[in-house]
């Protein structure tokens, strides 16, 4: 465990909590893509099946359980409790265009052709693109609430910190996972445009709105 990995995990946790609190406090999930949140719930479910097969550490187990629980709670708030506030008309990204190719790729390119490993690979690939419905929704409406941009910032920062963690681990531990690294690079690149807007607009106190 190095500092980049730890801050990456905490950044991920911050993102998840920010989103939950935003929905809970405002009693509304306006501007949030339920589809992205469904995909993240699927990502955590397929990745953390090793909770049943192996124990790494108390930290590892607790974080996995927290991520899974929070992602299901978020989905519940969007599709059940605050369904009336869900902006389904703008959440029109076709998720099958992500899930089907990602599913096929995880069968073709993986470390080991076993059920758990294929599901882990699927979750890694899917996570890298799971934010697309949310970004698509923002590009459609042309704006995002500031709290939503904080959520996206921490979510993007998390994988960027993991990239540094992987460089660190490569040099100091000889650890290298090509699948995670390539997917992590793709994932981080998808946030670049958003990072630019976040720094140039949101951090200067302006609302994130896109030119018409």
């Amino acid at each position: 465990m190095n500092i980049f990995r730890l801050t990456g995990d905490l950044s991920h946790l911050a993102a998840i909590i920010i989103l939950l609190l935003k929905i809970w406090k405002t009693r509304s999930c306006a501007g949030i893509s339920g589809k992205s949140q469904l995909l993240f719930a699927l990502v955590f479910t397929t990745r953390y099946l090793d909770l049943f097969t192996s124990f790494i550490s108390l930290y590892n187990t607790s974080m996995k359980l927290i991520y899974v629980a929070c992602s299901y709670a978020t989905v519940y708030l969007i599709y059940m409790k605050f369904k009336a506030t869900y902006d389904g008309n703008h959440d029109t990204f076709r998720v099958e265009f992500l899930v089907v190719p990602v599913g096929g790729l995880s069968f073709l390119v993986n470390h080991d052709f076993s059920p758990l490993e294929i599901l882990w690979t699927f979750s890694i690939y899917l996570e890298s693109v799971a934010i697309l419905p949310q970004l698509f929704m923002i590009s459609k409406t042309g704006e995002a609430e500031t709290i939503t941009t904080h959520y996206l910032f921490f979510l993007g920062l998390y994988r960027a910190l993991y990239l540094i963690n992987w460089i660190w681990r490569y040099y100091f531990e000889g650890f290298f996972d090509l699948i995670a690294v390539v997917a992590g690079v793709v994932q981080t690149i998808l946030y670049c445009d958003f990072f630019y807007l976040y720094v140039t607009k949101v951090l200067k106190g302006k609302k994130l709105s896109l030119p018409a």
């Binding site: 990995r5 995990d9 991920h12 090793d50 097969t53 192996s54 790494i56 550490s57 590892n60 974080m63 996995k64 991520y67 470390h111 080991d112 076993s114 758990l116 490993e117 882990w120 993991y162 650890f175 996972d177 090509l178 699948i179 995670a180």
Partner: peptide
């Protein structure tokens, strides 16, 4: 690649 048992990252 690493085995399923070795997945210490989140």
């Amino acid at each position: 690649g690493q085995s399923v048992e070795g997945k210490d990252e989140l």
